[in-house]
Amino acid sequence: MVWGSGIVSAVLVAAGGVVFSGWFTSLGTGVFDGLGSREPLTVAYVSIDDDGPDLALRERVTAPHDRAILLGRPDAAQEESFMERYRAARVGSMVVVAVLSGNRAGLRIADVRPRVLKREPVSDGALLRVTHAGEAGTIEVAADLDERVPRFVPVKGRKTPYFQVKQIDLVRDERVTLAMTLTACEAFYEFEFVATVVSGGRTEQVVIRRPGGLPFRLTGPARKYRSVYGENPLGGWRPTSPPAPAKRGC
C-alpha cells in the first residue's frame, strides 16, 4: 500500500456540531496547535489512499474553464476545487487512514463506524481511469456502505463486526492509526466516520471528516459512463476507451 503525497488535512467535529479551528492542509505552513485539548480524541491526520481506484464525476465536463482544468495542467488548488465541484468519488472502494491521539489519562475507543450522509444514484458523468503502477494493498477490514448499517468487519474470516470483539485503549498522547477500507456497489455516497469514545464513565462521539468539514465520497461503478478519460503522460486527462463492462467486485 502506498501512502504517497496525498495528504489531506483533518477537521474534528465535536459531538455538539462545533467545528474546531485547528486544522491544516498539505500546503499549509501553520504550526501544529494541538487542536482542542479538552476533547477526548485529537484527530491528528487523515490521509486517503493515493494509489487508489478510478474516480467518477457526477456530471460531464463541458464548461470551457473546467475543460481547461481537466485536459490541461492545473495547479493543485484549481484541481481540488474542480474535483469538489464535480463531487469526484472513488469508484468501488477506498482506504482512509486516520491517526487519533488520546487526550485523557485513559480512554477506550468503543466503536468506529461510517455514517452515510447522502445516498444518490451512482456517478456516471465522467470516469477518470487511473493508470496503476503498483499492486493494490491487502484489505484487512472493510465496511460496505451498501449495508443498511455499515460496520467494519474483517475481510477474511468471521463476519463479526470488529468492535464487537475488540476495542482500542489509549493513554494520554498515545496514538492509534486507523486504516479504514470502504466499499460501495449500488449507489453514490457522501459519508463521515463516527468514533465512540468512553472515558471516565462518559461516552462521547467524535466525527472524522475531510478538511473544511467536507464529507468523504465513494460511488459504485456505473454500467455506462457518459464520458471516459485516461491519464495523459504530459499531465491532465485525455479521452480514452471505456473499461470492460464487468462491474469489478460488484
Binding site: 474516480l55 484541481e79 474535483m83
Partner: peptide, 8 residues
C-alpha cells in the same frame, strides 16, 4: 492522484 478525498 486526486480523488474523493480532494487531495491535490
Amino acid at each position: 492522484r486526486s480523488g474523493g478525498g480532494g487531495d491535490g
